[in-house]
């Protein structure tokens, strides 16, 4: 009697594979983070002194820093070791703070990598975005110890 030949199943069973993929996709979509958020860290210094700086413009003006940025509603002024550069806000925003990036680059080259302090003095009416845009350019060259002061 001839032996019955068994049929060879050559198809790979893809059903468990698709099940696994579906589960993975559902999990990854559920846990996905769509907003790319980051932080610009700032340090406000000691409590008493900085409270005074935050509330009083005259106190803030007394602070002398080697590298300092003063931001007003119309102007951004950069100071570095006696050298200064003044930019109108429109000019700074129009080229996406590239001029500030140049200044920060020069400031970094003129001092060692250990110097990381930057003082930012903000006028009450200054736009918050200008502060972030300016600080971002200094962060790019590792000035990441930022002190924010309030000014009148």
């Amino acid at each position: 009697m001839a032996k019955k030949r068994r049929e060879i199943v050559d198809n790979l069973n893809l059903v468990p594979f698709i099940d696994l993929f579906s589960t993975l996709i559902i999990f990854l979509i559920a846990t996905a983070v769509w907003d790319q958020l980051s932080a610009v860290p700032i340090q406000l210094g000691s409590t008493e002194k900085s409270s005074a700086q935050m509330s009083s413009g005259s106190e803030a003006k007394r602070v002398q820093a080697e590298l300092k940025v003063t931001i007003s509603p119309t102007q951004i002024v950069l100071f570095d070791k006696g050298r200064s550069r003044s930019l109108s806000r429109d000019e700074a925003v129009a080229n996406e703070y590239a001029l500030i990036a140049e200044f920060a680059q020069a400031a970094r080259q003129s001092r060692g990598p250990d110097k990381k302090e930057l003082v930012v003095e903000m006028a009450d009416k200054a736009i918050y975005e200008d502060m972030i845009g300016t600080v971002d350019q200094f962060l790019a060259v590792n000035f990441d110890q930022l002190v924010i002061l309030g000014a009148e």
Binding site: D35, Q36, L37, S38, A39, V40, P41, I42, Q43, L44, G45, S46, T47, S50, S51, M54, I132, D136
Partner: peptide, 14 residues
């Protein structure tokens, strides 16, 4: 600052 919170992370997109 009055309560001693001196390290502030300003949230930005990017």
């Amino acid at each position: 600052l009055q309560e001693g919170y001196s390290k502030i992370d300003l949230v930005v997109s990017g």
